[in-house]
Design a protein around this nucleic acid. Structure first.
Lengths: 246, 246
DNA sequence: CGATATTTGTCCGTATGTATA
DNA sequence: GTATACATACGGACAAATATC
């Protein structure tokens, strides 16, 4: 007898079936964003399978970005999406305001470094030149949106770190250094999976894509004033490139 | 005695160590692109661990896009990276030529469709208007680089599909429809994990990031002539946005 | 074509380590 | 310190897809 094997053909594998069932439950809000899922042990009992089978299902959900697992704490449901504008005059604040959000920049690290080949080329300075290095976290809607490494030529922007810290804004800090206006020269965009450290700062899984944007800002004279490598949380951010510009 | 636990602190976990070792071997060409890795059983013996530990390592490599596993056949090493320019005047051919590559467009599907809300808004036509729909695959270096869905307003570009097919170029097809020049208005870029069908067309894993670029092209009069959603293979493509433009 | 071996995929069971509450 | 929960690793068994003879 060609018996009914499964009501729908989504039976597939146990772990896959369970993953889909959990994903659906999450989608329907049975498990809301931020909520802890039942423990692996408990899920294993619920579904009547081995704990490893549940682990396989959860691994799939982590990979799909639906949940984040944290050793010793539990497995939690994830979230969101924000649109940022990338143009000649990109300002973090303005982008966010445009998206109806408030946000600020936070200086995570500040240091004096020597220019490597990439930085030197971008900023048009000799290799080994002294640069100001900032690691900056950008937030919006209470969530990290991007984390960036920024390099500034040094005699000129010696006190920038403090200003960024005080004002929570790069453009404002520039303004206080006499740079009232500046332009973005070029942006290189790629989709990458973030390293663990970046992923943690972005509060996203290492298996979720991020946008890596490297860019150079120049002052109105065309002199490079900043080279940056910024990681954007792919799940929460869409970049919009304005070609005719504003 | 505080004995030496490991020569370097990269010991981490076995599976991670093994994964990195294999990744390095792949990077050094010990295992060249396309080559089959030793079987899990064999690797387990080589590294003196359980097969499941090797499987965990290989899962990591698959996830990182370094290898592809195929049931019954084996696990094979993967490949590449190309840079494409995104500007006011984006032309697939020119981008590739810039990257030192030759490539052509291939029309996968062609159909008449009604404008959905997105397409209608982008092309400034009423919803339900007749549009030409093309699914196009872009290749370079013998590999798929992007796959796109493109919508064209219809009375105007009735014969475009044939022209694209003949010339292997959108811009050339436009030219033959009397559009000698056109501009890109805006591009929205996000990092996404591709669906299975897109991933297959791009010949990449569903767990590897892709760049989704939606954009509108307008003719010199500012009339929208094309709305497109293009998926770029994240592992092989970097987009460069030229803000001052050429 | 069929039979068999190989190779990856799934699942169960157990034990131990490690981070957190 | 204790309990909980996730992480790693080992072991075995069988299924499914493929390759080979």
């Amino acid at each position: 007898m060609t018996d009914v094997i499964s009501t729908s053909r989504d039976a597939d594998r146990f772990w896959s079936r369970i993953a889909n069932e959990l994903a659906q439950a999450i989608g329907q809000g049975v498990y809301a964003p931020g909520v802890r899922l039942p423990s692996e042990h408990s899920l294993a009992q619920q579904f009547g399978v081995n704990r490893h089978t549940i682990r396989r299902s959860l691994a799939s959900l982590v990979q799909r970005g639906l949940v984040n697992a944290s050793q010793g704490r539990g497995t939690f449901v994830a979230s969101f999406a924000v649109e940022l504008v990338l143009g000649k005059r990109t300002r973090h604040r303005h982008s966010l305001r445009h998206a109806g959000l408030r946000g600020a920049l936070q200086v995570l690290k500040s240091a004096l470094v020597e220019a490597g080949s990439d930085e030197a080329k971008a900023l048009c300075v000799p290799e080994g030149s002294a640069l100001l290095y900032l690691q900056v976290l950008g937030e919006g809607a209470g969530q990290p949106l991007h984390v960036s490494e920024r390099f500034f030529p040094l005699p000129r922007f010696a006190n920038l770190a403090q200003e960024v810290h005080n004002t929570g804004s790069i453009s404002e800090a520039f303004a206080r250094h006499g740079v009232a206006d500046y332009l973005r020269q070029e942006s290189r965009i790629s989709a990458r999976l973030p390293e663990k450290d970046v992923a943690e700062l972005l509060a996203q899984s290492v298996s979720r894509p991020a946008l890596l944007v490297t860019s150079v800002n120049v002052d109105t004279e065309g002199v490079p004033i900043e080279f940056s490598k910024a990681w954007f949380a792919g799940d929460r951010v869409t970049l919009t490139v304005n070609h005719h510009d504003s």
